[in-house]
Amino acid sequence: MNIFRLVGDLSHLLAILLLLWKIWKTRSCAGVSGKSQIMFGLVYITRYLDLFTNFISIYNTTMKAIFIAVAIATIYLIYFKFKATYDSNHDTFRMEFLIVPVGGLAFLVNHDFTALEILWTFSIYLESVAILPQLFMISKTGEAETITSHYLFALGSYRALYIVNWVYRYYFEGFFDLIAIVAGCVQTILYCDFFYLYVTKVMHGKKLSLPA
């Protein structure tokens, strides 16, 4: 565990708790893509099946359990408790356009042709694109609430920090996992445009709105 990995994980944790807190506090999930949240839920569930087969550390188990629980709670708030506030008209990205190709790719390109490994690979690939419905929704409405922007910034930072973690691990531990690295880079690249808007607007106290 290096500092980049730890701060990355904490940033990830902060992101998902921030989103849950925002929805709970405002009693509204307006501007939040339920589809992105369903896909993140799918990511955690398919990746952390090893909770039942492998024990790594208390830290590892606790974080995995929190990620799964928070993801399910977020989905529940969006689709059940605060369903009336869910902006489904703007959340029109088709999930099957991501899930089907990603599932196919996980079958074709993986480390090992076993059920757990294919599901793990699927989750890595799916995570890299799961934010697209949320970004698509923002591009449709042309704006995002400030807390939603903070959520996206923390979530994007997590993957960017993981890249630094992989560089560190490659140099100091000789470790690298090509599938995770490539998918992680793709995921981080998707945030670049958003990072730019975040730094130029939200950090200067303005709401994130897209140029007309």
């Binding site: 990995r5 994980d9 990830h12 090893d50 492998n54 790594i56 550390s57 590892n60 974080m63 995995k64 990620f67 480390h111 090992d112 490994e117 793990w120 993981y162 973690n165 470790f175 690298f176 996992d177 995770a180």
Partner: peptide
């Protein structure tokens, strides 16, 4: 193995 190692990441 390489696979086992990556599984310690979240």
């Amino acid at each position: 193995s390489q696979n086992q190692e990556v599984k310690d990441e979240l």
